[in-house]
Amino acid sequence: MTLPEGVAYREFDGAERLATRGTPAYGEPVVDGWRVWDAGRSKLGAMFDAGIDTGLSGSDGVLYLGAANGTTASHVADFARVVYAVEFAARPMDDLLDAAAARETLVPLLNDARQPDTYAHVVENGLDAVVQDVATRGQAQVALANRQFLADDGRLVAALKARSEDVTREPGAIFGDALAELREGYEVLDTRRLDPRHDDHLAVVARPR
């Protein structure tokens, strides 16, 4: 089983669904303290649901890039040791702050993931994972720029979004270019398309090299 400790399938309304233990953050169903992690709303959730080995094991140190309103980051914070949640947009910050208020492990940062020097004085090195879900052009560059936070055996767990790079090109070609760029600093361990739950997204697990 590749699920981290603290992530499990639980029964909700007769269906087995991915879940973590924590304070509900966005009105998701809760049974016995476990709250549903909706794989349709969360790319990382979809990766777990697809059986991808992310390398996350529980009690991890995580840098989360593109936390948005904290839906996925809150689940990660439920099982991680510490989650540095970076989000550049001010608008979703209210929700992210609410999620952080209920979680001792969640550290919100209003920063641009393309400029790691603006948070390198806060985020520690030697982390177990960089989880990346940023909707910006140059996603491979973002991953390379944030490699410095990872331990040697740490993992990049990224959801690359083709439409953020170029809406006119074929996603397969975009992913090929992005992976080639990633390999400048990473060894790619696994890739998987996340369709149909997340169209034109490629899940990537990689480790620094």
Partner: peptide, 16 residues
Amino acid sequence: YARLRAAAIEAARTAA
């Protein structure tokens, strides 16, 4: 971590 989190929440709140 408790002190970091308190300061980070304050920083994100005021900046936002």
